[in-house]
C-alpha cells in the first residue's frame, strides 16, 4: 500500500444558482494528515462529497495521484483506494458489527459479486475481520446489531469500515463530533493508529483534535481556501483568526 497524493484544481460546485464551492485548488501530499476546517456552511462536507464522487463537480478536476476521479462513480473511486466516513454515521444498521466489517473487506479481497463462496469458510477473510474488530476495540460487541451500538461505538465502527478495504487515502468527516472528552481521546488514538502510512483528509470542528493530529491545515471559508499551512502557521495567520478561529486562537 503506497499512500497517494490528492490534487484538486479549481474545483467548483453549484446547486442551482448558488455556488457552494468557488474554485478550490488544493494539493494533499502522499502520507500527509491534512485537516480541513472552516465555519459552518463553508462547504467542507460538500468538498468531501465531490472528492468521494457522491456529487459531480460543476467544473475543475480532482486527481488521485495521476488518475482523474471527478468523473467516476463512488464505488469506482473507492476501488482506486479512496475511502470515506460520513458526518452522520453511515453503517449497515441491521447487520452485526462483525458483518459490517466483513462486508467492508469483501471487495478489496477480490470477492466481487460472488454467489458461490460461502463466507463462513473464508478463514483468511474472517480472521482479518476479527483482527479489525480488535483494532477498533469492539471485540466484545462482535455479534450486536450495529444499529444498537452506542454513538461512540458506531463512530468507531465506521472508522473501522472506512479503513477496512485497505484504502490508502482516507476521508473522515467530523469523526469526533458529539463525543465526550474521553471518547474523543480514544477516537484520536484510533485514527492515529489506523491511518498510519496513509493519506488522511479530515473535516473537524474540535481544534484540539485538529492541532493534535494534523500535519497540514487548510481553512475553507465560503467555498474558498483562505489559508493552508502547518498548524503553527495557521495559528499565527491573521486572516484565519479574523475569519474563523476568533476567540479560540486568541
Amino acid at each position: 500500500m503506497k499512500a497517494p497524493s490528492l490534487h484538486l484544481n479549481d474545483v467548483r460546485k453549484s446547486f442551482g444558482a448558488t455556488e457552494i464551492i468557488r474554485g478550490v485548488t488544493l494539493d494533499i501530499a502522499a502520507g500527509e494528515r491534512h485537516a480541513l476546517i472552516g465555519p459552518n456552511g463553508a462547504g467542507k462536507t460538500t468538498l468531501f462529497n465531490l472528492i468521494s464522487g457522491r456529487f459531480e463537480v460543476t467544473s475543475g478536476t480532482i486527481r488521485l495521484d495521476d488518475t482523474r476521479i471527478d468523473t467516476l462513480p463512488p464505488h469506482r473511486i473507492n476501488r482506486l483506494g479512496l475511502s470515506r466516513s460520513f458526518q452522520i454515521t453511515s453503517i449497515f444498521h441491521r447487520l452485526s458489527v462483525f458483518e459490517n466489517l466483513r462486508c467492508s473487506l469483501l471487495w478489496s479481497r477480490g470477492y466481487r459479486y460472488s454467489f458461490w463462496h460461502s463466507l463462513g469458510r473464508q478463514s483468511a477473510l474472517n480472521e482479518e475481520a476479527e483482527r479489525l474488530l480488535e483494532e477498533i476495540n469492539l471485540a466484545g460487541r462482535r455479534d450486536v446489531q450495529a444499529g444498537l451500538l452506542s454513538y461512540a461505538e458506531q463512530r468507531a465502527l465506521e472508522i473501522g469500515m472506512t479503513v477496512a478495504g485497505g484504502a490508502a487515502a482516507i476521508l473522515l468527516d467530523e469523526p469526533t463530533a458529539g463525543m465526550s472528552n474521553t471518547e474523543t481521546e480514544q477516537a484520536i488514538a484510533l485514527i492515529r493508529r489506523v491511518t498510519e502510512g496513509r493519506t488522511l483528509l479530515m473535516v473537524e470542528h474540535d481544534m484540539r483534535v485538529v492541532f493534535d493530529l494534523a500535519d497540514t491545515i487548510t481553512v475553507l471559508v465560503y467555498g474558498q481556501v483562505i489559508a493552508s499551512g502547518s498548524p503553527v502557521e495557521i495559528r499565527a495567520s491573521r486572516a484565519v483568526q479574523e475569519a474563523y478561529l476568533g476567540a479560540e486562537a486568541a
Binding site: 464505488h75 473507492n78 476501488r79 475511502s83 453511515s90 453503517i91 441491521r94 447487520l95 469483501l106 477496512a164
Partner: peptide, 15 residues
C-alpha cells in the same frame, strides 16, 4: 443485505 440497509455505504466499500 448491506445495500438494503444503506446503499450509499455499500458504494463506499467498493460495491
Amino acid at each position: 443485505n448491506a445495500c438494503r440497509d444503506n446503499y450509499e455505504r455499500a458504494q463506499f466499500v467498493g460495491y
